[in-house]
């Protein structure tokens, strides 16, 4: 799954740690999501969407092969 988390985070000048604290996960979790190694749960995806004031599908997108 592709995502725009890194871009949205950079727009706000937040570190991975800061973003993690805002949604209640570790820096490693944010890093793993940004690098595509981990797909967040639906509650976490919704929290991220609410935080960035976007819809979930504006942040996360299925790849062609998925």
């Amino acid at each position: 799954m592709k995502n725009r988390l890194k871009v949205l985070r950079a727009e706000r000048n937040w570190s991975q740690m800061e973003l993690g604290m805002r949604v209640g996960v570790s820096r490693q979790a944010i890093n793993a999501i940004e690098t595509g190694k981990y797909d967040p749960s639906l509650p976490l995806a919704l929290k991220l969407a609410r935080l960035f004031d976007h819809r979930v599908e504006d942040i996360f997108e299925l790849e062609e092969t998925e």
């Binding site: 209640g24 996960v25 570790s26 490693q28 979790a29 793993a32 999501i33 967040p40 749960s41």
Partner: peptide, 8 residues
């Protein structure tokens, strides 16, 4: 007690 990623 860990976050969802660490728990996984």
């Amino acid at each position: 007690g860990q976050d969802e990623f660490t728990r996984q």
